[in-house]
Amino acid sequence: MSQTMLADRTAQAVETEAAITLDHVNKWYGSMHVLRDVSLTVAQKERVVVCGPSGSGKSTMIRCINRLETHQEGRIIVDGTELTDDTRALDTIRREVGMVFQSFNLFPHLTILQNCTLAPIWVRKMPRAEAEELAMSYLRRVKIPEQANKFPGQLSGGQQQRVAIARALCMKPKIMLFDEPTSALDPEMIKEVLDTMIELAESGMTMVCVTHEMGFARKVADRVVFMDRGEIVESGPPTRMFESPQTDRLKLFLSQILRGH
């Protein structure tokens, strides 16, 4: 990804309305303050990778974006709609935001095809034939169309995660969230999932991805955000973040995960 193309796209992104805006978001678990004054703006078609040590709040932040967790203070605006307790707003947002989980969370009692068509049929009220066609096209895109009638338990981890990506894509979301998508995979299957995610990124999807895969971040991310202990410590383009980290905390983190690489 050349610097000019990156600059082009970032400029494009700034012009249009931001996809996700987090404005001084605070979250407490009981009395534990887990997100402190988090402010982040993700532009349309921007790819953001969030990294940080475990317990830094990165998963919590991303789960706040589609209201799997609730924030107590601050504002979150997704695709122009503010995220409040209002269930109408919530329904709108969940339709436009797709999520891929660390533990895949496929529905084991449904076939792959049924997993993918479930939400389009019941939430977007699509007719079954149309939904199945849509699902097959995405299954082809993630390169496992032949598994459509199998059950999740019959697939490998890498295949299951790709199905999970297809399932989220079937809702035609504007934004995709990834919560450590490759952390539960055996090493030989990580590549196939990352390739899928790279292809998705190159097609122009807005993505926020929590991951430890620094190679992926270097290749695809427009911006890397480093979080520690509930706050955003540093953020910037991947090359600068990895080669010349500014803060001590980021330096320490990089030394721990890039050890030996």
Partner: peptide, 27 residues
Amino acid sequence: LPKGQYEAADALGLSYWQKTGLIILPQ
């Protein structure tokens, strides 16, 4: 039932009764 099943159904935008009837209770 693993919590992830509830979350995946929520993330897809299913309502409470859709989630319960299609995903949670069958399993």
